[in-house]
Write a protein that binds this DNA or RNA. Structure first.
Lengths: 337, 337
DNA sequence: GTGAAAGCGCTAACAG
DNA sequence: CTGTTAGCGCTTTCAC
């Protein structure tokens, strides 16, 4: 990467002059037009980009606030980011000190490509949201010294903020049992995620215990999207032998499922009861309104921020974790008792 | 902010030693335990946070890629970020050079609080998404030298990527006219945004031209959310004298409106036809599926990235703008001709 | 009008 | 085991 030194050399001026001109102060300092043009030409030729770190270091009249990075996977779940970000924002606002927040998108299962995590050269602390199982494995074996908090994951090695996912699955299965269902279905996002696996096993295990029939054909994996829900629900309910209740481990999928059922003239909740997961904004206004497992996203975001701040200021050292509990929200698609 | 120098002084060691220890290399360099403890204690006492810029500058074996910042408002529209981010990500991936992307959340109408825009000390170029009208005014009068692209806004002073919002409104009004409606309603997000105002005037003007009746009571302002759509639609349709078609300038609001209509036993599209705006993922799976104005978000994201990159490399100087056209997608809530 | 030089906070190589 | 030193790339003050 070309530095300002090289620009100066090429334009046959001193570094200082080059800096002035490149920062638009040429006229102010009355640098002659030809000189300015030579400098700009050199910059264009060498494709000059100022080094932000150097700029910032030097111009450090402005005190630089500590930086918290939020690693977020660039996958279909990107929908969820809005809600979580709002929580983060509010939590930071409440702190006594200023922080900069920087969102670092990364490709799921490619966390190891993010060198900044090990070099610690971009931020003072980080929150890693929704890592895939592969990413978790990478983290467990890696030696990361930057203060780190995992969101929606648990770990022995790092701090974490999580929700009892297994319990969430159990709650839904118990609800189905109480409602007198015998045959139940399950839609699972085809995403590598411990959280989703736990919700699934909580549900599956409890179904077994309570004698609910969860045939293999009643479990379908689809993309984390309305379309995924539509396709998988269609697959399950197009058979003659169908379940009377359906758990979708994502509200987005549940919305697609509701549509599929509507299309097949199966009425919800009369013929099929449906429960989603997450409590997205839309679920209160779907037709019918969707029963769902509410994730305390804002509270968890808050906890993440506090934890990473404490970690940065060495107030906590050993990995701690906070476990939240989700709540079942019953709406028309599957009323409570 | 305490620097490593002060830590070293307080712990009575040299700066070098302090650096070693604070970076976890104490054991590796066999710094004695008491010394290490003294250093850590000093750091804790002075609440030391390493200066990231300095770290990065120094450890610059890793070449630092130019940084593109994406300014995004922290308001209810945060839902939209997922789709746009995906577009950005893909566009960057296609470039020959590496870039870092950094998302900078900011509070709507508070863009002037973001000093980094004028100091240019955090990124090499920036995209500003969805500024409010107040933010636009600030930008017009400010003297910002960092390469800048406005997304979903137009400007004479800066580069911009936009869609013909006025035309979008016209298209919907024309559709309603063709469908033979006489009385029409309008739901508007109560957000300060030029884009939304233009969509609105395109719709209102064309309604007038084509002789559609858009009474004052048929225009409602609500929050950019399902709830907002629900409330405003309820307000319009609870009267005896109601419109037969409804344009919601946001799919999220449209979803709430669909629910309100369902609740009032007004069938869509038989009694009321509904058209949304944005083409969110959900609109294909609402009940009934929602006709909507498709925003070419991915293409626009792509254009933003290319533009800011060209700006950074001085390939373009004068402000240029690209205008996209939206397309009307007709689904069951309001079929085409 | 332009150049020279100092120094932002930090790390790493080298001494001792 | 710990201290000293030389910059990383940039801006800015002060000379000339």
């Amino acid at each position: 990467m070309a530095s300002i030194k090289e620009i100066a050399a090429l334009a046959k001026v001193s570094q200082g002059t080059a800096s002035l001109v490149l920062n638009g102060k040429g006229d102010q300092f009355r640098i002659s037009a030809p000189t300015q043009e030579r400098i700009f030409a050199a910059a264009r030729e060498l494709d000059y980009r100022p080094n932000i770190s150097a700029k910032r270091l030097r111009s450090s009249g402005e005190t630089v606030a500590p930086i918290i990075a939020l690693f977020w996977t660039m996958d279909p779940r990107s929908q969820l980011i809005g809600r979580y970000l709002n929580g983060i924002q509010k939590a930071i606002h409440r702190l006594d000190r200023e922080y900069e927040i920087l969102i670092q998108p990364y490709v799921g299962s490619q966390l190891q490509a993010e060198k900044s995590l090990v070099t610690g050269t971009r931020f003072n602390g980080a929150i890693i949201a929704l890592p895939t199982e592969e990413d978790e494995r990478y983290l467990e074996q890696a030696d990361i010294k930057v203060p780190l908090v995992l969101y929606q994951r648990s770990s022995d090695k790092y701090c974490s903020v999580n929700v009892d996912n297994y319990l969430s699955g159990q709650k839904v299965a118990n609800l189905f049992a109480k409602r007198g269902h015998r045959k139940v279905g399950l839609l699972v996002p085809d995403i590598s995620s411990t959280a989703i696996r736990l919700r699934m096993s909580g549900f599956v295990d409890t179904c077994r215990e309570r004698g609910l029939l969860l045939k293999e054909e009643y479990i379908q994996y689809g993309s984390f999207s309305e379309l995924g829900g539509y396709q998988t629900a269609s697959a399950i309910f197009s058979r003659a032998d169908r379940p009377s209740a359906l758990f979708c481990i994502s509200d987005q999928m549940a919305v697609g499922a509701l549509y599929a059922l509507h299309e097949m003239n199966l009425s919800v909740p009369e013929q099929v009861e449906v429960v989603g997961h997450d409590d997205d904004a839309v679920s209160e206004f779907s037709i019918p309104p969707l029963s769902t497992v509410h994730l305390p996203v804002e509270e968890m975001a808050h906890a993440c921020v506090n934890m990473v701040v404490d970690l940065m200021s060495h107030k906590i050292a050993a990995p701690v974790s906070r476990l939240f509990e989700s709540t079942l929200i019953t709406r028309k698609s599957c009323e409570g008792e």
